[in-house]
Design a protein around this nucleic acid. Structure first.
Lengths: 191, 191
DNA sequence: TCGTCGGGAGAACGGGCGTTCTCTCGCGGT
DNA sequence: ACCGCGAGAGAACGCCCGTTCTCCCGACGA
């Protein structure tokens, strides 16, 4: 065996992640992933029985990575209010990554959501997870209506993601942070 | 001549609009548009020299339609503050259309933005136009910083569009409207 | 009436893609 | 040393798609 199964999987997933995210899921052929990963097609199909399965794994991995990065930023803050603002700092640092091209779930949903129920479902789950995280933060900060504040914050976040992707600027993150601060003034008890 | 050039063009554009929007640009073949429009392939290629040209025309048409629908809602309101809220009422009525599947520009950008500069450019122009419209409304409402208010409103709008598309619910429009009201409380001079 | 022009229907072409198959080779066990 | 399993490389297959071509017909001017 040339390479260990686990490392082969990691190589394939890394290559798929980079290519799918950069060019979109449909524009990337299995051959490109074969070339980029250095894993033979035969093995690739042993690890992932179809392109759809690979797409699923790609989205799953993105979800994990995204949650981890978000948690790192949020955990670094101590004050509940600061933790909410840290979400937008996280967005800003994400937007300034040179390969930033929007949210993988929004992009995949736009490509395949109407045609692949699985992709649509994964996008919903990802966004639901984010919403839950925001709701927890809002509750911890003592919001009178944490669900409402969470909804407002998620709108700002999603808006910032797509606006930043299309405009190519990271400014929407700071604008969203501004707006979040204003909304918190109204939704949180005075300190 | 079986059908007049103008009506043939309209039939093709209507078919392309429906199919591209519903299934995504890349999932729809020229053959499907030929069948749906009833216009022969030969004529189709006389009217639009390539699929790319047809995609461009599709996006252009979407832009026009969208601006028109927005303007109808905004113009129906009289108070400057009401005009801004009318934007979110427009979003709500859009989201409840049975074929709603998010913003055609965001979806196309996710599919082709990285690979087609023309699509990326059209998406930027569309969003810039929306931003300008919001900035005008914010200025008319007497915002201290109309650019900032416009930026906050566009984030709420874009967030509502993608959240609604993925969740399949129109609720984000009302949540965004709520948030917009709160932000206006702070950004506009007391009445 | 005849020829020609333009359009409709759909076959054809060239290329790409997802998936599978073939061939070959190196390695481990006896 | 030999056998056979599994892996790598890439050809092959079947299908789809964008684009062009062919063939046929109906309309219209001389």
């Amino acid at each position: 065996m040339a390479i260990d199964t686990a490392t082969a999987q990691r190589q394939v997933l890394d290559a798929a992640d980079a290519l799918f995210y950069e060019r979109g899921v449909q524009s990337v052929g299995m051959d490109a992933i074969r070339t980029a990963s250095g894993v033979s097609l035969k093995r690739l199909y042993q690890l992932f029985p179809s392109k759809d399965a690979l797409i699923e794994a790609y989205l799953h991995q993105r979800d994990q990575q995204w949650k981890t990065m978000l948690a790192e930023h949020v955990d670094a803050a101590t004050e509940p209010r600061e933790k909410i603002l840290a979400v937008f700092d996280f967005l800003h640092s994400w937007f300034t990554q040179k390969d930033f091209r929007g949210c993988a779930f929004i992009n995949s949903f736009g490509e395949l959501g109407a045609v692949s129920p699985k992709v649509a479902e994964l996008a919903q789950e990802h966004k639901a997870g984010f919403r839950q995280a925001l709701a927890d933060l809002a509750a911890a900060a003592g919001a009178a209506d944490p669900q409402q504040l969470a909804d407002h914050l998620i709108l700002l976040s999603e808006g910032a993601i797509t606006t930043s992707a299309i405009s190519g600027s990271a400014a929407p993150a700071t604008r969203a942070r501004e707006a979040a601060e204003l909304l918190m003034q109204l939704a949180l008890p005075a300190r």
